[in-house]
Design a protein around this nucleic acid. Structure first.
Lengths: 186, 186
DNA sequence: TAGGTCATGTAAAGAGTTACATGATTTT
DNA sequence: AAAATCATGTAACTCTTTACATGACCTA
């Protein structure tokens, strides 16, 4: 997966491993991210397979490896992008604890759900400002799909926040939902 | 994470490694799943830490290890469940290809988006019937949170499907969105 | 001149899946 | 009698992060 994403970014223009990470942080990190510890070895593998080449850019004593996609790399990428999208159930770690919230007191459940909302809110704000920034810089038509994935991200976060809010509301109005007493450790 | 989920299931009652997997498939697989290759070693680790114990259940020549949570296991679980929910950006693999769909022809993009919808639809249907099944068997109040997470799943899938439909509609009505010609391999 | 950022890379550890091995029991 | 399912377990592999190492450049 990571190797294809790198090829995708290189389809858009030559860049370094370091900058690749910056691009990911700015544009894909809300649905896909990678650390330097996986990016650099991935570039090495792509180089071994001759899907990318690099040119050393030296400025003073500072050097940079500028990677470029090869013809074979472009073909590999196009083959991948044309294939059907495989739908994998994605892990939603925040649901795991909530699934077992029957064991938590209602007050604590509400407090933790509120804290979750507060943890998500800055992420949406960040994504919103990224979208606005992108709107000023790029052509809406050419980057149609990127805008769409950003909208996906924003709406997905809103969905999670609204689901939490709904839950809090129901917990606050229904006096029957605290069953945690049953499970007190004896 | 897996170890805590196992403790959570054992909080609800004694069970075997095999049945643990069945429970996960039925109730958490749309946001968390694990294979036997991770469940059995996890049970072993929990046993080493004395958070669970097991009793051998022998019926004829067939044996089963029935695991039970210990007092220390319950305390470990309760400590975990009370902690704030950490929000991690979750990988949404289906977005990765779409992010780069500027390189795909509009026709192929639409076809692949339609295929994605068709891949998600049976998953929603499955989750819907699970929810109905659960509604008949369990107390709505006691399993309030489980219903809520199922609703999350169903609504999340609907969200993805609607986002894809919206995209298809926009692609079909707007003649400007096919820019893939630019990127043909020379 | 100290601390932050730029820039690349590696080693170890973590968390998981896939594939296999084993053998009993149940279904067709 | 064969095939599917029940039931446990291990070994190899994959993919990833974290932590570290190195060194240059930039800014307060």
């Amino acid at each position: 997966m990571l190797e294809f994403i790198i090829l995708g970014f290189l389809m858009c223009g030559d860049t370094s491993g370091y900058d690749l990470k910056q691009w990911m942080t700015k544009s894909t990190s809300y649905f896909f991210d990678a650390s330097f510890g996986s990016i650099y070895p991935a570039l090495k593998r792509l180089e071994d397979k001759k899907l990318v080449i690099f040119n050393e850019s030296v400025q003073g004593n500072k050097y940079k490896k500028i990677y470029q996609i090869t013809k074979s790399g472009k073909e590999t990428f196009m083959k991948w992008i044309e294939e059907p999208i495989t739908f994998e159930k994605s892990r939603q770690d925040h649901l795991v604890k909530i699934f077992f919230y029957e064991f938590l007191s209602k007050d604590k459940a509400i407090a933790n759900l509120r804290a979750l909302i507060e943890a998500i809110e800055p992420v949406v704000k960040n994504l919103n400002s990224q979208k606005e920034e992108a709107a000023g810089q790029y052509d809406l038509y050419q980057f149609y799909y990127r805008y769409a994935t950003m909208d996906y991200g924003i709406n997905y976060y809103h969905f999670v926040i609204n689901w939490c809010r709904d839950m809090i509301k129901k917990l606050e109005t229904d006096p029957e939902t605290d069953r945690s007493q049953r499970f007190k450790i004896k």
